[in-house]
Simulated scan of single mutants.
Amino acid sequence: MPHLQFEINKKLLDGTKREFYKKIRDTFSEVMNTGVDHIAISIKELNRFDVSIGRAIEGDDICLMNLDIREGRSIEQRRELALRFMSIVNELFEIENRNQYITFTQHKGEDFHLIERYLATWAKGEDPLA
């Protein structure tokens, strides 16, 4: 059950958030070869100076992404996901790519729990809730 966390220093409209959730969920599913029902996404809207990245100009819009995923994805998959997420953030949140930063944290499947069960080790093309 990935938890995809996005911290931004601006306020967003609900319609933009709904479109964002759909694009992020669909992209994760496609790139990581998995279903969508177990994907958790959170957006934290912070004040202008609550988020910083050294290369940004003071006052710029910024997006920091913390992506907690299961072990087993290749560096190529993670890199493709990072680039596609940055493109979505740029398109929908209008945040420059240079002001975005992504951190992946990989966990064993057993670290992710739903009411029904914990998840197994990732397998290509799986539906973890089936």
Rank of each mutant, 00 (worst) to 15 (best):
I43V: 12
E91W: 07
K17Y: 10
L92I: 10
F20V: 08
Y21H: 10
F112H: 00
L46D: 05
G109K: 01
E19V: 13
E94F: 04
G35N: 07
L92W: 12
A56Y: 02
T105D: 12
H107A: 09
N99T: 08
I57G: 05
L64G: 04
H107W: 09
K23Q: 15
L81W: 03
L114K: 06
I95M: 04
L92P: 06
A130C: 12
N90R: 10
I43W: 04
D111M: 07
E19W: 08
L13P: 01
Q5V: 08
L67N: 11
Y101C: 12
E91V: 05
R48P: 00
L92E: 09
F49W: 06
A123L: 10
N9V: 07
I75A: 15
A120R: 03
A40V: 09
H113K: 02
R79Q: 15
S87K: 14
W122T: 01
E19Q: 11
L119H: 00
E91C: 09
T121R: 05
R98E: 11
G59A: 12
K124F: 02
I53W: 08
E45F: 00
I39H: 00
E126S: 10
D61M: 04
S42M: 14
L83E: 15
A120G: 10
T105W: 08
P2Y: 02
S42L: 12
C63S: 07
L129A: 06
P128R: 00
L119N: 00
E94R: 12
K23I: 10
I102W: 02
H113P: 00
N66D: 14
V36M: 11
H3C: 13
R84Y: 13
D68A: 09
F93Y: 10
K22Y: 13
K124V: 08
R18S: 13
K108R: 15
R84P: 02
F20W: 07
S74Q: 13
S42A: 14
E94I: 07
S52N: 13
F85V: 07
D127N: 13
E30S: 15
S52W: 04
N90Y: 03
E91I: 05
H113F: 03
L67I: 15
D37Q: 12
N47Q: 08
T105F: 14
N97P: 09
A130K: 13
R48C: 04
N47V: 01
D26E: 15
K17Q: 11
K44E: 05
E45Q: 08
C63M: 08
T27Q: 09
K108M: 12
L12P: 01
G125P: 03
L46Y: 03
I62V: 15
L67F: 14
D60Y: 02
I43C: 06
Q5R: 11
A130D: 09
I43M: 11
I62P: 00
A56K: 06
R18W: 09
M32T: 02
I88A: 07
S52M: 09
C63R: 01
I53K: 06
L4D: 02
T105G: 05
R55T: 10
K23H: 14
E58T: 08
K108T: 13
M32E: 01
H113W: 05
R55Y: 11
H38Y: 11
R117P: 01
K22H: 14
R25E: 10
F104C: 12
Q100R: 05
I24N: 02
D37V: 06
E45I: 04
D26L: 09
G125W: 03
D61V: 05
